[in-house]
Design a protein around this nucleic acid. Structure first.
Lengths: 258, 258
DNA sequence: GGTACGGTCTGGTCCGGACCAGTTGCCAGA
DNA sequence: TCTGGCAACTGGTCCGGACCAGACCGTACC
């Protein structure tokens, strides 16, 4: 039986073999094979790339975790069909509103250098110089208050932030002025009711239901933003599609960002 | 050096050893250890539970994927900080709670055939025979009410639903009894405050903030569930990762809810 | 023709060993 | 006292083997 010639060789080195194999397989799946096509069997891959089956399985598992492949016991491993909807978009408030045909605006409440609480400092990875910009804003859509934002931004990465116009999209400002693009974010949301201060700022009755988002945004792997946004729960909705990819007993997934 | 006595023994059987170990470790992490505490080293676990290191690592990896543990090279494996969060995935309430080390239970309020409102009938794609099962339940975690569910399920796809035990996971019931697996769902969420009825059922003060989910779930492309769940906003959180084009749910804000 | 039964593919689980690579503390030498 | 280096941890990678379980197909039997 002829041994298949690998297009790339897996070598010892700083980069783990399973990661190298993942790259090879991802390329194979995307460019040479199509959706629903079977990739070579694990035992084939062992001999082709001269690695152990454990390594092959680890490589495949990371691609499964990424949604690129799926396995069927007894049949084989196949290229997953690409999802219909583009999964997620990381949109700023301004982008969000514009896409919905509403006019976004901003009421700037305050910008100042301050020492953030410990959890914020930790999330922002602040070192000795523990100061950061504190930016409080009310966001409006077509003139109506929608959300209250309390944000913290590292001073070191954003010198002179207070000298710029903070009445628009901060994300666009970061990109244009500081050449920092938000790439990923971790977001947590829960429910609250508006206290008197928040209610007043949102021009809403006390005890108005709120959707509270805490978002930590990253640029080049470094935290750039810690923001808590309180949206009027009666004026906003969050819509999401849930797929099936992580239903079963999840096995392996590598970290998304450091 | 004395060998630690395992509180539970890992045995051969239909359930894989690594899954059994995962359960043991999850229990250990949640109930005996605290946040940031180190779990025993992989080599300790090998001898304690008499399994190979590969099995130990596989067990740990699944818990890391679930966000329960995290590893630090050279230091150890630690219990992740205890966020009462649910990853944004398509999991049933029961799965969600078990994954977090909580014991899910259910208080069944009512099951009956009824004619759903027009929007529900439309979402469920009900034809002439416009009846569906109406299932109202309170979901609890460790005995405390967490959510109130009002669900509608097509009678035609689920004959005799009221004769089964509705005190557990409906998704598992659908899969086991009717061979219907939930594959995708559309979910919309907003904020509300609890009215007197809801507050009473959730054993919470009136005006407690609520996270309200409306979920329409699909099996084989056909709508199988229309459910509105009201979660105590002060006891639950939703966590999501946003990135460029990697997996993770899209979170799209829509306009005001109807 | 239909059916039951194996081979023989596939992935799933598990073992025990080996070595590499960060982390930390202890101890000897400067 | 300070510092460098070693030793003893930790997890990370990788091997090659073994057996189990699901899927498939050809064949021999009814």
């Amino acid at each position: 039986m002829p041994k298949n010639r690998p297009d790339r060789v897996i070598t010892d080195g700083p980069r783990p073999k399973h990661a190298q194999l993942s790259d090879v397989l991802a390329d194979l799946a995307v460019h040479e094979l199509g959706p629903d096509a079977a990739i070579p069997s694990e035992r084939d891959l062992m001999t082709t790339y001269d690695v152990s089956r454990a390594t092959v399985r680890k490589a495949i598992e990371s691609l499964i975790a990424d949604g690129l492949l799926h396995r069927i016991h007894g049949k084989g491993t196949f290229v997953a069909t690409p999802r219909l909807e583009s999964r997620l978009h990381l949109a700023s408030f301004s982008q969000d509103m514009r896409r919905r045909g509403l006019t976004p605006s901003t009421r700037l409440l305050s910008v100042e250098l301050d020492e953030p609480p410990a959890d914020v400092a930790k999330a922002l990875d602040l070192s000795a110089d523990g100061t950061a910009w504190r930016v409080d804003r009310v966001r409006l859509a077509d003139g109506e208050p929608i959300a209250l934002e309390n944000g913290w931004y590292p001073k070191r990465l954003l010198p002179g932030l207070d000298r710029h116009d903070l009445g628009g999209s901060l994300y666009e400002l970061f990109a244009d002025v500081y050449d920092l693009t938000i790439e990923t974010a971790e977001q947590t949301l829960w429910g609250e009711t508006a206290d008197t201060t928040t209610a007043k700022r949102l021009d809403a009755p006390v005890h108005t239901p709120l959707l509270v988002f805490r978002r930590i945004s990253y640029s080049a792997g470094r935290p750039l933003e810690y923001v808590v946004s309180r949206y009027r729960g009666d004026r906003s909705q969050l819509h999401m599609s849930l797929g099936r990819d992580d239903l079963g007993p999840s096995s392996t997934s590598e970290g998304k960002h450091p």
